[in-house]
Amino acid sequence: MKYYLPLISAMALSLLSACNNNDEPEVVGGPADPMAEKLANAAPIELPPSVKESHQYRCKDNSLIFVDFMSDDKTANLRTEKNGSPTKLVAAEPGKPFTADGGYSVEGGGKQITATLPGKSALSCKA
Score class of each variant (00 low, 15 high):
Met1Thr: 02
Met1Gly: 13
Lys2Glu: 10
Tyr3Ala: 08
Tyr4Ala: 05
Tyr4Met: 06
Ile8Lys: 01
Ala10Lys: 03
Met11Arg: 01
Ser14Met: 11
Leu15Glu: 02
Leu16Gly: 13
Ser17Asp: 00
Ala18Leu: 15
Ala18Phe: 06
Cys19Pro: 01
Asn21Tyr: 01
Asn22Val: 10
Asp23His: 04
Asp23Pro: 02
Asp23Ala: 08
Glu24Ile: 04
Glu24Gln: 12
Glu24Pro: 02
Glu26Tyr: 15
Glu26Pro: 01
Val27Gln: 13
Val28Asn: 09
Gly29Ala: 11
Gly29Met: 09
Gly30Ser: 10
Asp33Ile: 01
Pro34Lys: 04
Ala36Thr: 04
Glu37Asp: 13
Glu37Ala: 01
Leu39Ala: 09
Leu39Tyr: 13
Leu39Ser: 05
Ala43Asp: 09
Ile45Trp: 09
Ile45Ala: 05
Leu47Asn: 15
Leu47Glu: 15
Leu47Val: 01
Pro48Thr: 02
Ser50Gly: 15
Ser50Leu: 13
Ser50Thr: 10
Val51Lys: 09
Val51Met: 11
Glu53Phe: 04
Glu53Lys: 09
Glu53Trp: 05
Glu53Gly: 03
His55Lys: 10
Arg58Ile: 07
Cys59Pro: 12
Lys60His: 13
Lys60Ala: 14
Asn62Trp: 10
Asn62Ile: 08
Ser63Asp: 15
Leu64Met: 15
Phe66His: 07
Phe66Gly: 01
Phe69Leu: 03
Ser71Ala: 12
Asp73Leu: 06
Lys74His: 07
Thr75Val: 03
Thr75Asn: 05
Ala76Gln: 07
Asn77Tyr: 15
Thr80Val: 10
Glu81Asn: 06
Asn83Tyr: 11
Ser85Glu: 14
Pro86Asp: 00
Leu89Glu: 05
Ala91Pro: 02
Ala91Leu: 00
Ala91Met: 05
Ala91Ser: 06
Ala92His: 12
Lys96Gly: 06
Lys96Ala: 15
Pro97Met: 05
Pro97Ile: 10
Phe98His: 08
Thr99Arg: 07
Thr99Glu: 14
Asp101Ile: 02
Gly103Gln: 12
Gly103Pro: 01
Tyr104Ser: 02
Ser105Ala: 06
Ser105Thr: 03
Val106Ser: 08
Gly108Val: 03
Gly109Cys: 03
Lys111Trp: 13
Gln112His: 14
Thr114Arg: 00
Thr114Gly: 04
Ala115Gly: 06
Thr116Tyr: 09
Leu117Gln: 09
Pro118Ile: 15
Gly119Leu: 10
Ser121Asn: 14
Leu123Asp: 08
Ser124Gln: 12
Ala127Cys: 01
